[in-house]
Design a protein around this nucleic acid. Structure first.
Length: 483
RNA sequence: GUCCCCAUCGUCUAGUCUGGCCUAGGACACUAGAUUUUCAAUCUAGCGACACGGGUUCGAAUCCCGUUGGGGGCGCCA
């Protein structure tokens, strides 16, 4: 169902909690799609659940999206020609359409209570059937409706579901068909006057002239209901695209409830992952580049994104692969950028943040980290020199080790211009003078400097430590020094 | 239970629409080797999959049917 209207996509979260990776992926696909085609992206807040929606959650949502580099053209914060963009601020619109449906006989008042409905549902399930509204109030005479209203009995407005099969075209799945009578009459307006999701969603997508609805597969059966509403209201339907879900390691839907570690976007921000890395990883969950490449910049993602390459089967969120990809992005990032991103993490850990030192640390550790929160951990390990590990102690006991360190110290003399590269030269020359092999000179030096036998390149380590600290540690083990 | 969706290495996937180029390609992880002063990074190699059963066809991972398995929905949540 292509049309020539200008392309408008939307992301419509409910502000009921933190943004989780599934929602983030949906937002990302919409963003990628809109930006790829030069269309408009709308951010709509679906806050009709007053119990659970909060303003702080909404603010957090925007923060998370912005951190990911997902921007929108119309939304609650920036307005737009089809606002307002919070559903609770559009109630008159829903009421109006609901009234139209009631007037045409396509909707009716229902006085059943929650408790009554729940009992019926349980009975239907027990009887081995599908739980659904049984039509109790479907054909109440107008006078009876009036009478109950006058008595002050609470009511909801239900959609009179027509008894006919429904089908729609899905951009990633093809034709989807539902037989007649697969759903019962569903609620349009609650007793408190607020619309339900399936109603508000249709009214708004139409009012906001949305042309493409890209959302999770969990909405497939909602789309059935929504299409019914589109049809009876004679609204033009958008193109639907249902993206498969992201599953947890237990293969079940990644729920908003407290789940496994790493299911919320803010966790990645807090850990100092590069947003482009998360974006890259999420994009590859259910989509792939035609080139087969996997480590992709945001620009390439945007240039190559294509709904036709979105996969139908669900994907499990593989934290291990995300960590690898995050590391790739760290290695590809400009050092200056990493320095400023690392500074807050160092400051929070009470560590120095002067740019030159931070740069030395970045250079030393960037090959082995996935996120910036790992920097202070590594720096602390480096700065806090404890007892040498057994292997390091052994390296310091090798014949010539202490003599070497002493010679280095002696040749170092009063020079103050020593950096990592110069230190390496000094080491090598001293070793040569004593007839030592590469390993015999580097291992004792490493052991003296860090108390360990593994770690980054020695010159990088030297610069990370600073000449003064390095020399101090060297002298500790030079000649007959204590252990 | 019922409706809908899905089904390729442990995981993400290419290939499926437009059957043959697929004795199924890549990536993560894992294993081994190379390289390096060590670790990491990097490079090379190895391991490893078309869920099953029927069709259709000269030929099927690709099309059809069934089975099984997995997921999602079935709310005055979204």
């Amino acid at each position: 169902m292509t049309n020539s209207r200008p392309l408008r996509a939307r992301f419509a979260p409910s502000p009921t909690g933190r943004l989780h990776v599934g929602g983030a992926r949906t937002a990302l696909f919409n963003w990628l799609f809109a930006r790829h085609h030069g269309g408009t992206l709308v951010l709509r807040i679906e806050d009709t659940d007053q119990e659970r929606s909060t303003r702080p959650a909404e603010a957090a949502l925007l923060t998370d999206l912005q951190w990911m580099g997902i921007d929108w053209d119309e939304g609650p914060d920036c307005g737009g020609p089809f606002g307002p963009y919070r559903q609770t601020e559009r109630l008159a619109l829903y009421a109006e359409h609901a009234a139209r449906l009631v007037a045409s006989g396509d909707a009716f008042a229902c006085f059943c209570t929650d408790a009554e409905l729940e009992v019926k549902r349980q009975a239907q399930i027990a009887a081995g059937g599908e739980p659904r509204y049984d039509g109790t109030c479907r054909d109440l005479p107008a006078a009876e409706v009036e009478a109950r209203r006058n008595r002050g009995v609470a009511s909801v407005t239900r959609f009179r579901v027509p008894s006919r099969p429904v089908h729609f075209e899905d951009n990633v799945r093809g034709r989807i068909e539902f037989g007649a009578d697969t759903v019962g009459d569903f609620v349009l307006l609650r007793s408190n006057g607020l619309p339900t999701y399936n109603f508000a969603c249709v009214v708004d997508d139409v009012a906001m002239q949305i042309t493409h609805v890209i959302r999770g597969e969990d909405h497939l059966s909602n789309t059935l209901r929504q299409v019914l509403v589109y049809e009876t209201l004679h609204f033009a339907q958008p193109v639907f695209a249902h993206v498969s879900l992201i599953l947890g390691e237990d293969r079940s839907k990644l729920k908003k409830r407290a789940g496994q570690e790493g299911t919320y976007v803010d966790e990645y921000r807090d850990r100092g992952y590069l947003p482009d890395a998360l974006v890259n990883f999420l994009a590859l969950l259910g989509w792939s580049s035609a080139t087969g490449d996997e480590v992709l910049t945001r620009e390439r993602l945007r240039a190559e994104f294509d709904l036709g390459r979105v996969s139908r089967s669900p994907a499990i969120f593989d934290v291990q692969k995300l960590r690898w990809m995050a590391g790739e992005h760290v290695r590809a990032a400009p050092v200056a950028g990493l320095v400023s991103l690392a500074q807050p993490f160092l400051a929070a850990a009470g560590l120095p943040t002067d740019p030159l030192r931070v740069q030395a640390w970045i250079l030393a550790f960037r090959d082995s980290i996935a996120c910036l929160a790992e920097i202070p951990v590594r720096v602390r390990e480096l700065l806090e020199l404890g007892e040498p590990e057994p292997e390091a102690a052994a390296a310091l006991q090798t014949p010539g080790a202490r003599g070497l360190l002493a010679l280095v110290d002696e040749r170092w003399g009063t020079r103050t211009d020593l950096d990592g590269a110069a230190f390496k030269v000094l080491l090598q020359e001293s070793g040569k003078a004593l007839g030592l092999k590469g390993r015999e000179v580097f291992m004792p030096a490493r052991a003296a400097l860090t108390g360990r036998i593994h770690g980054p390149d020695l010159p990088l380590l030297f610069d990370s430590l600073g000449a003064a600290a390095a020399r101090e540690r060297l002298r500790l083990h030079a000649r007959g020094g204590a252990c």
